[in-house]
Write a protein that binds this DNA or RNA. Structure first.
Length: 426
RNA sequence: GCGAGCAUAGCUCAGUUGGUUAGAGCGCCUGACUGUGGAUCAGGAGGUCACGGGUUCAAGCCCCGUUGCUCGCCCCA
């Protein structure tokens, strides 16, 4: 049998899988709560294509970043290079520009929910096809109020999901005015200590010096403590921006930890960077990551646009949602219709159709089973009620409604059945 | 890209120092019960022991390789 591609997964009704992050009921909950939370803050949904020109990501996320090297890229039949999207900020900014949204008077607040693709080695909480929920605030303003409100919204979102054991990490990574000088100072300081650092630190000194700050090797810690921090090198504009951002978080009572070593992996980030981490996720514990990217639009050849946003991995959210928030029974049928005899089946189709028109979820036994077997199927589907229709019922116009939990049976007409089931819902 | 662990029925797992025809629980099918599910009882189906090679009189078990899954490194959501 042909199996699924490595690093992908099937999302199934919970009764077919014990893996929490593969249960559709959990996914539907996360998506529903996200849409509702974002709606309250004035965000609108956008869907961009899954494939884009490779150039969009090479310029957007940076050609030398890991994300870019992990892309699924191929040559289309006409010779054009296209890629499965590894993230959705660059596509969203592309769409913003391509559809002239910059002509809007105010901020454009967008959110997306969709699959992304990166060819990494799969592990817990990291897949080759993974889903992200993200938001982007685009416009001419870089007010820290935008950032604080987005984070406030995130906390509302997480609270509604019942995810409470989280930590907010924030940092400012500077801008074009102050970051270059900091990076060269950092590189200089690392070089002096290079012989004392571990192998991967030496590697990162070459590829991404900011990452050296993040090393977890014990023997490196004492040397890392001596390295300069970006927070000491921020220009006035970045420093003011960061303190205003913090003031607005304080005002909202949102706790945070300043993490001077927090860096984003993609080239387009500047100034505010943040991350929300969760427990019980294993090594991949970042639930949400985001930041400011004021230069991105111009890198892509568009108008100057300021932007702030985040992305969150749905798999990781789903794994973090506690059992108590989930209703695994959302899909259970309200009514199972069992028929006695082939003639009554034809009759039952009409009854079922009218009950469905009234809004009730109905499964009819299409297999012509004996009553005993039909009820067994109703039981395994966890139907709330069964409806038994045979010759006697057709004659009288009243059908036997059986409560599958108590076994209690009553003879009811169609309108009474509708009333009973609707009443039960309240 | 690098490292480690695991792979036996649909699912969760036993399987002794290598020894006859590979087991259990759950699930599935049939019946006890011709218009009444769940509980009980009786019976049944279902296996290339991941794949390929090797050692041996003999391999689910030992050795090598491959593939897959899982976890970690890197990096990230």
């Amino acid at each position: 049998m042909i199996s699924r591609v490595k690093g992908t997964q099937d999302i199934l009704p919970a009764r077919f899988t014990a893996k929490p992050d593969a249960q559709i009921e959990r996914w539907l909950l996360v998506e529903r709560v996200a849409r509702e939370a974002f709606r309250r803050y004035g965000f609108e949904e956008i869907r961009t294509p899954i494939i884009e020109r490779t150039e969009l990501f090479e310029r957007g996320v940076g050609a030398e970043t890991d994300v870019n090297k992990e892309m699924y890229t191929f040559e289309d039949r006409d010779g054009e290079m296209v890629s499965l999207r590894p993230e959705s900020t660059a596509p969203t900014v592309r769409a913003y520009s391509e559809h002239g949204m910059f002509n809007q008077a105010g901020l454009v607040k967008l959110f997306y929910i969709g699959p992304q693709f990166r060819r990494e080695r799969p592990q817990k909480g990291r897949y080759r096809q993974f889903w992200q929920i993200g938001v982007e605030v685009l416009g001419q303003s870089d007010e820290p109020a935008i950032e604080a409100e987005v984070i406030e919204m995130l906390y509302w979102f997480l609270m509604e999901l019942g995810i409470s054991d989280t930590e907010l990490l924030i940092n400012s990574i500077g801008d074009g005015a102050c970051r270059p000088a900091y990076i060269s100072a950092l590189r200089e300081a690392i070089r002096e200590r290079l012989p004392n650092l571990c192998g991967s630190c030496r590697q990162r000194y070459e590829t991404n010096p900011l990452r050296v700050l993040d090393c977890k090797v014990e023997s490196c810690q004492v040397h890392l403590a001596e390295l300069p921090l970006i927070s000491d090198s921020l220009c006035d504009a970045c420093g003011n921006h960061f303190s205003e951002f913090r003031r607005l978080l304080d005002q909202r009572g949102i706790a945070y930890k300043i993490e001077p070593r927090l860096v984003r992996g993609l080239d387009y980030y500047m100034r505010t960077a943040f991350e929300i981490t969760g427990s019980s996720l294993g090594a991949q514990n970042t639930l949400i990551g985001g930041g400011r990217y004021d230069g991105l639009s111009e890198i892509l050849g568009g108008q100057p646009v300021k932007g702030f946003g985040f992305a969150s991995g749905i798999e990781r959210l789903v794994m973090s949602v506690p059992e108590s928030t989930i209703n695994l029974g959302v899909n259970r049928p309200e009514l199972f219709v069992a028929c006695v005899g082939a003639d009554s089946r034809d009759y039952a189709f009409g009854v079922a159709r009218r009950l469905r028109a009234a809004g009730i979820s109905v499964i009819v036994d299409l297999e012509g089973r004996k009553l005993k077997k039909a009820l067994a199927v109703a039981n395994s589907l966890d139907a709330q009620y069964s409806l038994i229709i045979g010759e006697d019922e057709i004659k009288s116009g009243s059908y036997v409604l059986r409560d599958m939990k108590t076994g209690e049976q009553t003879s009811l007409r169609e309108s009474e059945i509708i009333d009973t089931l609707k009443y039960r819902r309240l």
